[in-house]
Simulated assay, not measured.
Amino acid sequence: MDQDTAPGTAQPPITLYTSAICGYCVAAKTFLRSRGLEWDEVRIDLDPAERERMVARTRRSTVPQIFVGDVHVGGYDDMMALHRAGRFDALLQPATDGRDA
């Protein structure tokens, strides 16, 4: 998806650690797609080194594991809880350096 954004206002990247046989992974991607968001998908079932990297980053072995920028959101249920609480969109805002506060 091509989105016009001003320099320095891009949303943080979204990373999903997933596997092929995972209903929650499909649900997470469906939710993100419904919001018009893009993500990088890391298939841990295809690359054991990526599985190790995910476990080291998250201390969890289940998928999906979702990151917005460097923020570990957690799994699908965690992401939906943030969304229902109105806090998921805040993670999508561009990072600021604190000078415009």
Rank of each mutant, 00 (worst) to 15 (best):
Q93L: 15
R84M: 03
V73G: 05
R60K: 07
A28W: 03
A95T: 11
L16C: 02
A49L: 10
S61L: 13
M80P: 01
E52T: 12
T15F: 08
I14D: 11
G74F: 15
T62S: 08
Y17N: 00
D47Y: 04
R60D: 01
H83Y: 11
L92S: 02
I66D: 02
Y24V: 00
A28C: 03
R35E: 08
R99Q: 15
E41G: 11
T30K: 12
G98C: 11
K29H: 03
S61Y: 11
A20S: 13
Q3D: 15
D47P: 03
Q93H: 13
Y76I: 05
G69H: 01
R87T: 11
G86N: 02
V73R: 04
F31K: 09
G36Q: 03
V55K: 13
D45I: 00
P12E: 00
T96A: 07
Q93K: 15
P12D: 00
D45K: 01
T58Q: 06
I14V: 12
R84I: 01
V42I: 14
A101M: 12
T15L: 10
P94C: 13
Q93R: 15
H72P: 05
A81K: 14
H83F: 09
C22H: 03
C25D: 07
V71K: 13
D4P: 10
K29S: 00
G69L: 01
A81I: 10
R53M: 02
R51E: 12
I66Q: 02
Q11T: 14
W39K: 00
A27P: 04
A56C: 08
H83W: 09
Y17E: 01
A101S: 12
S34R: 12
Q65E: 04
C25Y: 07
T96N: 08
A10G: 06
I66L: 05
V55D: 07
R59P: 05
P7R: 08
V63S: 07
L32N: 05
R84F: 04
Y17V: 00
E38D: 13
D100W: 14
